[in-house]
Design a protein around this nucleic acid. Structure first.
Lengths: 252, 252
DNA sequence: CGTCCTATTGATGGGGTTCAAGGCGTGTGG
DNA sequence: CCACACGCCTTGAACCCCATCAATAGGACG
């Protein structure tokens, strides 16, 4: 049933890196859902909005963000195809941050009740869901280290390598390049920098031969050289997952 | 059965802010566990260590941290009594960060199998567990905003107010003061600053009449004035939780 | 064909780091 | 019981990474 795998980036990502039964993927693909589309810039969920449904990102990029009273924006996390927009829907009543579309976005909206039915029928899928959620937490921790203890010259490539790897996992990047729909302003707001300094640092990365870009396409010739520059852990996001599966079969 | 509530900070925290059945708390208090003690500075879990058990923090402070190759330390998150040291134990095989004791620590160690039995018997407790885990994620997002878009003069009181509130929830702070076992170096490594600048900023906060301290005791006379200075959201961590309970009764 | 957003570059300045040195309290071993 | 070491706090001085302000240029779009 490899056709079903390609249908959704969530399934694609999960099935590549996590042992999910084919029959469970089948259940996933036939799940009852509603499709929603958003234009670039649209709010998907306002800060403080009620969490009523499971939202899965099918295509396009989205961001979790917060604003300070001075009007500064902090992009807390970037969501890519295959990510879960509302992992906390089973636990929290409202979002503590805004979620908006960075590019045009297609999402699947699932009722919690239906999601629970799927989890009951497809145990390995339930485990995969929580594993994907946990990956985000790992990335949040990584983001904290990036902001707290790395220079601008490290932050930018570190983010790029993370995005590249994530995109690659859902088949949206080649080995050496990917499309980055972020403006320099977006990068700045993600990494706690000013847009001006992002611009200058990008030039430095280009002139240093670390990266190249034409329009929104980023090229990384030598990812291990770049990884060394910014201390990117190549094992990052490769949370070894096999244990969780066995455990999940008995989780409440 | 209010006696049982006081037995553990986890139960105390949860029962104050989350509707957990008394009978479920009873189950929790009679759960099978092993007690472990750590001295200040001890590693509780090394980075990359296997996650085999549920670890609950009973008393003392602990930190999640990461190191850069240059030897810089980033404290990703601070764990207080009542927190879950290993929320990802059901999902990940290894930790992506080190966990160590900041002060002397007492922890409860529970086998996943036993934890699952408790979750099955005590549904509201299971929901509370995930709710506590979700609170940590909210704090990670807050930490990202703090590091990315706030000045040193805001970061420090923002952290203090968060710690104060959390401690208050487990009965370890008065309305206006709490004990902070962090060195200025620890604060620096939490907030992405140098210890020198933390020192100077603390003085500024004191001379501005925002805080006072004698030894490890921090006083906050006027928390709303301080909250305004650093844009601390007083509703923060007050994730409205009532919905999750109803849902949890059917979660896979 | 103006308008708006994004990228780019220069100039200036400040928040924060780094280096360095001194004081203070605590523990420890000779 | 004192001497010394060590960790933490403190303060000064120099410097630098990065922010801010400002101005120009280049699309995309109605």
């Amino acid at each position: 049933m490899k056709l079903t795998v390609a249908n959704s980036p969530f399934a694609s990502r999960v099935s590549r890196n996590y042992q999910v039964d084919d029959s469970d993927l089948e259940v996933f693909e036939h799940m009852d859902f509603r499709q929603a589309e958003f234009k670039a810039g649209d709010a998907i969920l306002e800060r403080g909005a009620e969490l009523k449904q499971v939202v899965l990102l099918v295509s396009g990029w989205a961001i979790r963000c917060r604003y300070t009273p001075e009007g500064l924006r902090q992009i807390v996390h970037i969501l890519l195809p295959g990510d879960i927009v509302t992992p906390s829907v089973f636990v929290a009543k409202r979002t503590d941050h805004g979620i908006s579309a960075l590019s045009d976005v297609v999402a699947r909206i699932v009722e919690p009740r239906e999601m629970q039915r799927v989890f009951n029928e497809a145990k390995t899928l339930a485990a995969a869901f929580w594993w994907v959620a946990e990956q985000e937490h790992g990335m949040l921790r990584e983001q904290i280290v990036r902001l707290g203890r790395r220079s601008a010259l490290q932050r930018i490539p570190h983010l790029f390598l993370e995005l590249h790897r994530r995109l690659f996992l859902v088949g949206q990047a080649t080995a050496e390049s990917f499309i980055l729909p972020l403006t320099q302003m977006d990068i700045a707001d993600t990494l706690g920098l000013s847009n001006v300094h992002v611009n200058r640092t990008l030039k430095k990365l280009v002139s240093g031969g670390y990266i190249a870009y034409e329009g929104p396409v980023i090229h990384i010739h030598d990812s291990s050289r770049l990884a060394e520059l910014c201390d990117f852990d190549l094992a990052h996001l490769h949370l070894d997952s096999t244990v969780a599966i066995a455990r999940s079969k008995g989780v409440a």
